[in-house]
Nucleic acid binder design. Structure first.
Lengths: 228, 228, 228, 228
DNA sequence: CATGAATGAGCCTTCATTCAT
DNA sequence: AATGAATGAAGGCTCATTCAT
């Protein structure tokens, strides 16, 4: 279920492959190939010919499934938006406490990216690229992520697990950024180590911070109590 | 002093502008123009002609100062590597405690990027782009940043301000990522609000985390003490 | 059968033109066009656009058949090397005596160049151009020619038709040069007269020289005998 | 007196170098440099900058002495036309018999080219280049050479040294071509051996031909008489 | 006269896209 | 639906030539 997992169509039964399914299969075939090529060379340095060769189809065939080159990237992000959204939401809903929800979110986040390195690379690379191309898709994805995070934070605050004096719009970015950078480092390292094992210490850091007993000012009493 | 600040040569006195200085001036002029164009359109979608027009020179002139298009981006990152390295190091050295050092680092980081939005945009956009072009420059910059951060963390651990049970190589990326994402958000927002004001809550988050009294397990006592 | 003779594929039967043949046809079409343009303007002053226009294809099409502009010239010489080699060798082998072989060689040489003036022009023009481009191809062609000539001379010496006191490496160049210059003159004249008719007097000159009875010294007796 | 010989101004006396002479000196300096560069790279692949660097002047300076790049080649050939014409004529006039005149012509020809290899290379390379650029100059040079040769032949015919049944317009080209090719071979060899030593065997070949006793047909008597 | 920075026209080459088969 | 040859617009880069100093 490695690099192909996210395009995988759970084709359940049917002995005969319908025309529609064959089309869908080729659509995904090309999309996968494109992502692989994009991952290796970046979007702008990839050519339609390379993608076609990788997919084992003719150049022209690509235009039967995609409007143009941009559309491939667009479709990729569009597809992922929905897919990842469901995956994250699903996982978050499995937990009850804010801490567990955050934990589930981050773990699933790392899992998804670890399971599809090409996707991870393309996401990391193109997400910040200031081509207006995929802007909207990315905003959606990002918003979804930040919304889930904000939800968790608010729930945690109600439940008392999370500080109430937080600048929520900062915190949610702080969390996304931390996770993102950890993924980025893993990608740049060539994906050699186990990314998911970073989940626990990450959540720990997010909750406890790096301070030995909280922030210095205004918490003297606490600190005193902490290290008797 | 906005977009031009980092290339700005405060040519102090001299009545006559020497040829050499004019050359240096034009070099920076083109570099600035290029960064501006890159910021608007991304590296690959920018053309030499656009850069030339922006700089107010002929296309061919660019090749008197840069080997080729790639070289412009390379020079940009090369220049920034050194410049930012000194700026950060300088600021960190001004403080004594680990917390103050981190605070200075982050504040300066945000200042530098706020003062030169084009640089910020290009940096955010191209830093993750998987073109092997600027890979080495970026690794250097990143390493420098992470090294400073690691230094601070270790000092803080010795001084007791920072937890000793930290996975340092994770923490430093966690910090960089958090700062980075905050900048990224600011960039994508169009740079409308004051980025530097994020420094304080960021440092607070990094030190204290988001937990209301630290991590849940094994800190029940603390939590009790915190909310009497 | 003029300018196109040497690329001409006498496609004999076949009702349908296969893709492969169409490709070969277009390859030759472009090569012919290129040679024509090169003949008119010289290699360096010819542009890809001119060649494309002459061939009736788009600029980009040329790059489907040739690696780059240099490659066109290279292919031209490579093609001719083989083709002319066979033609010359074939003709030489038809004769028995050294004199007849030389006669056949020179006649065929003049025929080939007369039948394809563009080729002749390009050959004359680029053969001496000191671009290292086609150096190797030309050396091959030249060597082939000189080798055939040397062979003939040696055979003639054995058979007693040719003087034995010759500096063979000079003679073969002397012959090539004489033929070459005659072609060159014809080319510069615009190819108006019949080049092949030069073959006989050329061979006569090569065999008899211009002297009225051989070299002056040591041949006084002969001269006396010659003009009674 | 090697590579610079042909531009050498025998500046006879005068202690002070006049402005005019300084100009002339620089003119020749540039011309020499250009010829050297042309010899190495060919006309079209040489740049003004390379010539300027070779001459030790600024690019712009070249335009004070030459109208444009073409003009440099033009001037080169123009200069040579006159210079070589005089040299050849002078040498031919020193001899009386047709054979000696031809001998002197060819020897001087080889000497001039051997003494200035760069000139030889450029001449060989550009003389045949079908750029209409130097066409006229070359025609002049060629005509001059052919005229001298024709003169010699006619004189020889009158004096009985040379056959009367010759196609003169062919013979003169035959001679030029043979000499030319010998020079060309020497140039391509890198100019390592003594070119002038080729003069004697060349003249011998031209007069006697390669036949062992003249042309086969109709010369049986001669042959008989020749080898008694 | 000399300089060399600046210019910009022009060329080679790439590659997304089309379309006849 | 699939192909891949053909297209031609676009862009990076070179270099002859100019001109202010």
């Amino acid at each position: 279920m490695n690099t192909h997992s996210y395009f995988g169509g759970h084709r359940p039964g049917g002995a005969v492959i319908s025309q529609k399914e064959r089309n869908k299969a080729k659509y995904h075939l090309i999309l996968e190939a494109a992502v692989k090529v994009f991952a290796q060379q970046g979007f702008f340095q990839s050519t339609i010919s390379q993608i076609a060769r990788e997919a084992g189809v003719a150049d022209g065939t690509i235009y039967l499934y995609f409007k143009n080159k941009d559309d491939i990237l667009l479709q990729f992000f569009g597809y992922k938006t929905k897919q990842v959204f469901h995956s994250f939401r699903e996982e978050v809903d499995k937990a009850d406490s804010a801490r567990d929800k955050l934990w589930n979110l981050i773990r699933r986040h790392l899992e998804e990216f670890q399971n599809d390195k090409n996707m991870a690379v393309v996401y990391q690379a193109e997400a910040r690229s200031n081509s207006r191309l995929v802007e909207r898709q990315l905003q959606e994805m990002s918003k979804m992520y930040l919304d889930i995070t904000a939800e968790i934070i608010e729930q945690g605050q109600e439940e008392g697990q999370i500080r109430k004096d937080l600048y929520v719009s900062l915190v949610k970015r702080f969390i996304l950024g931390a996770v993102d950078e950890v993924i980025n480092t893993w990608v740049l390292s060539g994906g050699k180590y186990d990314l998911v094992s970073m989940a626990e210490p990450l959540v720990d850091l997010i909750f406890r911070g790096i301070g030995s007993g909280g922030a210095p000012e205004g918490q003297v009493l606490l600190q005193a109590g902490q290290t008797p």
